[in-house]
């Protein structure tokens, strides 16, 4: 959250995160090349570098795709999500380095334009890799908050969901390329294990989310029972569902309800906390006032609010959303 954009929103935690990413990448590349040299002493450094960069990017892609469902299953993974965009940009740059080295090594020696050669030779696996790289580029190029604000959260999120299509392209790129020419089964096993891991993780996270997504019972005239007030911890929320998810917060002896969806990256506001009087998104720290769903000035983000009431020690929230930023009188807890 910032009034004026900066190039990269670094803070101490993000710098530490980025150092881990870069160090991890360099250690992996050195390890891969070292082990490969022991196994294939006659391999050229160019070939080893191409393979090391490719496997590093593929591995990073698996980590990136694992972070979302892991966070849904266990909030202790949230710090990984906080800076996922930097990991994504690093993955794109690693994949780009792989592509550049591969084009120079395999397509720049003849008379034909190297890019034409790339698209017209082999089993087509290069074209699949190039298509995935274009998607990764679009994601990296639009990863700044400027794009989130100007494309709008819906378009931005849809664009970035393209990572799953890119993953499918990369799996085919590996299957028709490296697996086609590699006699040793280790890469095939690793690729299969990666796919199985991601599939299982996403299914388990989706099932968990779906179980909590059953619509809460409407009691009368559109009101939903959010349960006993004492069951909601101070500064925390209970998430209820009425088609849309609603976060019912208890704070300072009051009850307020807002949309569970943060305007920034659709983070789950109901899993956040009230900090300094503001509902704070657990993903990137975007804040909203519980009474009106507005970010404190000078920020301008707004989420929908909901009418609330407390009867007999139980909190009730109306299922009809008010327009984003509409003030609603909190109920006394």
């Amino acid at each position: 959250m910032s009034v004026s954009y900066s190039a990269i929103g670094w803070n101490r935690a993000k710098k530490a995160y980025d150092k881990v990413i870069v160090t991890g990448l360099l250690v992996y590349l050195a390890f891969f090349i070292g082990v490969s040299l022991l196994a294939h002493p006659d391999a050229t450094i160019e070939t080893l570098l191409i393979r090391a960069l490719a496997t590093a990017a593929f591995l990073m892609l698996h980590v990136i795709l694992s972070i979302g469902p892991l966070c849904r299953l266990n909030p202790s993974f949230l710090p990984l999500l906080y800076n996922r965009r930097h990991l994504g940009v690093t993955m794109f740059l690693t994949a780009l380095a792989h592509a550049v080295f591969a084009i120079v090594q395999f397509h720049a020696q003849g008379n034909e334009n190297p890019l034409v050669s790339l698209l017209t030779t082999g089993t087509g696996f290069q074209t699949l890799g190039a298509a995935a790289l274009v998607i990764f580029f679009l994601m990296a190029a639009t990863s700044h908050d400027f794009w989130l604000a100007n494309l709008g959260p819906r378009v931005w999120k849809t664009l970035h969901m393209g990572v799953y299509f890119a993953y499918a392209l990369i799996v085919m790129h590996v299957a028709l390329g490296a697996l086609h020419s590699e006699a040793h089964p280790v890469l095939a096993i690793a690729t299969g294990a990666g796919m199985a891991w991601l599939f299982t993780l996403h299914v388990v996270a989706a099932l968990r989310e779906r179980a909590g997504d059953r619509d809460d019972e409407l009691i009368d005239d559109g009101w939903i029972d959010a349960g006993p007030v004492v069951d909601i911890s101070e500064g925390r929320a209970r998430i209820v569902s009425a088609g849309e998810r609603i976060a019912v917060f208890r704070y300072d002896g009051k009850i307020s309800a807002v949309s569970n969806v943060c305007r920034h990256q659709y983070g789950p506001l109901g899993e956040g906390r009230v900090i300094d009087g503001c509902i704070t998104c657990p993903w990137h720290g975007y804040q909203y006032l519980p009474g009106n769903g507005r970010s404190p000035a000078p920020f301008t983000e707004k989420v929908a609010t909901y009418d609330v009431r407390v009867v007999g020690g139980r909190a009730y929230v109306h299922s009809k959303a008010n327009a984003p930023g509409t003030p609603v009188k909190p109920a006394h807890a």
Partner: peptide
């Protein structure tokens, strides 16, 4: 975009590819 008005030139370099 008012938030871009006073942003540094490095921000402009970052968003240029997009």
């Amino acid at each position: 975009d008012a938030s871009a008005k006073t942003a540094p030139w490095t921000f402009r370099v970052i968003v240029l590819p997009g």
